[in-house]
Design a protein around this nucleic acid. Structure first.
Lengths: 154, 154
DNA sequence: GTATTTAGACAGTCATTCTGTCTAATCATT
DNA sequence: AATGATTAGACAGAATGACTGTCTAAATAC
């Protein structure tokens, strides 16, 4: 027993590829390509974890607490990432003039270059995908994914 | 300067939501729901990292090396996960009769229950999504994501 | 003006990956 | 059959990225 036999309603070999896998695989490929592109542009010290900062940071600077909330992580974890990026020269951490408790995380010129590169890489990669599967399907994909995100966020 | 001003061709506020984000958001929601469902069924000690094992393990058992290759990680990392699952009682690690160097990771009955729960949770969650966005769109989404994965995997 | 909340720092922990090195077993080639 | 190369996995150590808990100082609410 055990080999390919039905242990429950579905055998392992019959298992259908999950929606999660279908979402995960292209996402992971894109992520690898984005960070490879960043490295190729001289930003090899930017790691995926830093994307939580670049994804949500505002042009005038953002507070650690706000970034943490947007990224759905603790303030401590976000402070670690921001401090890390500050050590690497991509952001500066300055006191918030409107609240003496708070500190603003602000992109340096080099940080802004990373931000621009991220936008460009994402745009180019999506273009490459669209070129292969067709612009119409890409538009459909975007539309459906948007609906899915809205539908699933209870 | 700096506030909402054009520092490059695109300002931060103009940035379009990336394809990566569109893929990531529903994936993360699904993942949270799957692991919450697993916890609700009494498997609260299964963590997302363990999915690399459950995703690729074969019914007759799989070698650490094979799992590592499928999951695209080092043998050491996979051995850590397998050892972890063995400690938790979800797999046993037995010598491979066909190769004295190798060891087989084999699901226990309880491990198989987790596997079944993962299949069921994925199925149910997809059904819930389909109920909200429509079965036709879900079918389109599956089809396009499959094409995308094939197109992007250089 | 006191009490509560908020922002962040500091310390410690844990999980998940990695590299590097090692042994033992297998495979390939002479 | 002996040798050399490869493969499977173990062990040790480290880095990363997240957590909890506790603390101070500042801001806000009553």
């Amino acid at each position: 027993m055990w080999q390919n036999e039905k242990m429950s309603n579905i055998t392992i070999s019959e298992a259908r590829v999950t929606l999660g896998s279908l979402l995960r695989k292209p996402y992971e490929v894109l992520q690898v390509k984005v960070y490879a592109g960043l490295a190729a542009r001289g930003f090899g010290d930017i790691r995926p974890a830093h994307s939580s900062v670049f994804r949500y940071i505002r042009p005038e600077g953002s507070r650690v607490s706000d970034l943490a909330e947007l990224a759905d992580m603790t303030k401590q974890s976000m402070a670690y990432l921001a401090g890390n990026l500050a050590d690497l020269g991509y952001v500066t951490i300055a006191p918030d003039p409107t609240d003496a408790r708070a500190k603003l995380v602000i992109l340096t010129v080099r940080g802004r270059q990373v931000w621009d590169a991220l936008v460009e890489l994402s745009f180019d990669l999506e273009g490459q995908c669209a070129a292969r599967i067709g612009a119409e399907k890409m538009a459909q994909l975007r539309a459906i994914l948007g609906e899915l995100a809205a539908a699933i966020a209870d």
